[in-house]
Simulated scan of single mutants.
Amino acid sequence: MAHKLPPIALFGYDSSPFTQKIRLALRFLQLPYTFIIVPSMMPRPILVDNFNLTYRKIPVLAIGRDVFIDTSLILEHLHSHPALRWYRQAQGAGAEIHHDTRGRVLARLLSSHYTDRPLFRLTTGLIPSVVWRTKFGDDRARLIGHVLDPSKLEKKVPKNLASLDTYLSILEPLFLEEQGGWFLGTEQPSAADISLWYQLEWGEKISRGEGIENLTGGGTADGMGEGMKEVFNKARYPGLWDWYERFNTYVDGLPNVETRVERGDEVGIEKLMRMLEDVEQERDVPMLPTPAVSLQGLEERIGLRIGTKVSIVPDDTGRGDPTVGKLVAISPEEAVIEPDEPEVVGKKGRRARIERVRLHFPKVGFVIQPMKEAKL
């Protein structure tokens, strides 16, 4: 019996570290997918026109008509989604990104509270200042909510390098102890290795200016960066460096499972959208497995009743672009909504192409609030 894989579409761009994280995970799991290139800056009409998705961060992953937000949630669904596990078991391909429950929990905590936030702020602080003098700097100022001063950011690079050195120093004993092993002591790499490696790999490149032309949409040429070689090198942190190189070799040995569709490839985009249109929505909402169900009474006390219209925003940046829709499922870790139609999101007269879409958000890192009823 053939096991059919639902279409998987990743929306992102090459110089996005979080996009690279999910590309790594898909390659680990050997899940064939389509990589749709979107702009590094707003607007991104492909997401609004097809899904009514106004959320402005990247990446976004679609598995059929279910659309997943934030890499922390995406990674977990790639591991646990019933249709994907069924396919992988039938194919007998791909490694596991979680080897046991302890590893799964530790990797999630590492990602949500370490690599994706404080470590990312440090690597971002190493971006050459020329980037902040382009339209990309203006776009990210709107995302953050305040003006960015390129000269001040440039002066902070040495401080950020010193802080990065502190982080590396904390990590080094673990990798010295492993001596050829992986982050959590497993025989094969796991999500924990993905979550640290993607951030260091992106930081190493972007700090030298590699990828800034893509990042700024052509606003500046690659180069002009100081790099992080002063603090991240084999002599200073041999255990961490050997792990970094070993992981790179491991990834290079994995078969490619990606079909790439460039922004101007109308034929490729149309082919993908037709595939998504042809998929029937699963009756049951795919949710992360949790040890306990949602506390319905408590959720209702804070206005999160199934069927209620809610607004969802990140709790750090991008709060000016809420996603609005009807709450259709909720758990202790996840909220799922059906997005509002275009009259609400600002595109009167046009409906989203892909109907009956469900948008999945993690609860960690997001604020979910009921919408106030309009008074007549």
Rank of each mutant, 00 (worst) to 15 (best):
W243D: 05
R208I: 05
M41Y: 08
R353Q: 07
T124A: 13
G185V: 12
G181M: 05
H113R: 13
T290S: 15
G325P: 09
L109E: 08
R108T: 05
M1Y: 08
I37E: 07
T317Y: 13
D14H: 06
V344M: 09
S195C: 07
T54Y: 03
G318T: 09
V147G: 09
K271I: 09
V130E: 04
I22Y: 04
K152V: 14
F51K: 02
S169P: 00
L276S: 05
A2P: 03
T134M: 03
Y250S: 02
G227C: 12
M287G: 01
H3K: 10
S151A: 15
Q188W: 11
Y13G: 02
I330D: 04
Y87A: 01
V105W: 03
R117I: 09
L10K: 00
P173M: 12
L171K: 09
A93H: 11
G346E: 13
A292R: 14
V60E: 04
I354Y: 07
I22G: 02
Y33C: 08
V147P: 03
I269K: 13
V285F: 11
K155P: 00
R65A: 10
L174E: 10
T101W: 09
A191N: 12
K152L: 15
Y55L: 08
E230A: 15
E154D: 15
G227L: 12
T54K: 00
I74H: 02
G346L: 11
P59C: 10
L122R: 08
S16N: 10
L24F: 05
A329Q: 13
S169L: 13
E226T: 08
T323W: 01
T124C: 12
I269W: 05
G209E: 08
T308D: 01
D14R: 07
M275L: 14
M41P: 06
R283K: 15
K271M: 13
Y244L: 10
Q20S: 11
V130P: 02
I69K: 03
L288F: 03
D252C: 10
V157E: 12
A25D: 10
L24K: 04
E177D: 14
F28N: 01
G181E: 03
G268W: 02
D66N: 06
M275W: 02
